[in-house]
């Protein structure tokens, strides 16, 4: 299955992209994406990261389905 992973702010700068399509085995969970990314970009781990799945805050334990929209971002700083 394919999921779309979005990055913003600090995570977009670290990854060097704002959107990556990920191929994952069926029944993967959101945190598997994070583990793969940290292996490739170790400096990601220095941020306090949050996940969302389909534009809702998530814990990382959610089982993903084809076409899901995931975002991985540092603690927000609006206002």
């Amino acid at each position: 299955m394919t999921v779309q992973v979005l990055f913003f702010g600090a995570t977009a700068d670290t990854i060097g992209q704002r959107r990556v399509d990920f191929e994952l085995p069926p029944n993967s969970i959101a945190s598997q994406i994070f583990e793969q990314l940290v292996a490739e970009y170790p400096s990601l781990a220095k941020h306090r990261l949050h996940y969302s799945v389909n534009q809702q805050y998530a814990t990382g334990n959610e089982t993903l389905t084809d076409g899901d929209e995931i975002a991985i971002f540092a603690a927000v700083s609006g206002g």
């Binding site: 913003f8 702010g9 600090a10 969302s52 805050y57 975002a71 971002f73 540092a74 927000v76 700083s77 609006g78 206002g79």
Partner: peptide, 14 residues
Amino acid sequence: IIKELKRTVPIWKK
């Protein structure tokens, strides 16, 4: 609201 906005709304400042 401003306290919660700064904690939960996905907006980032550079």
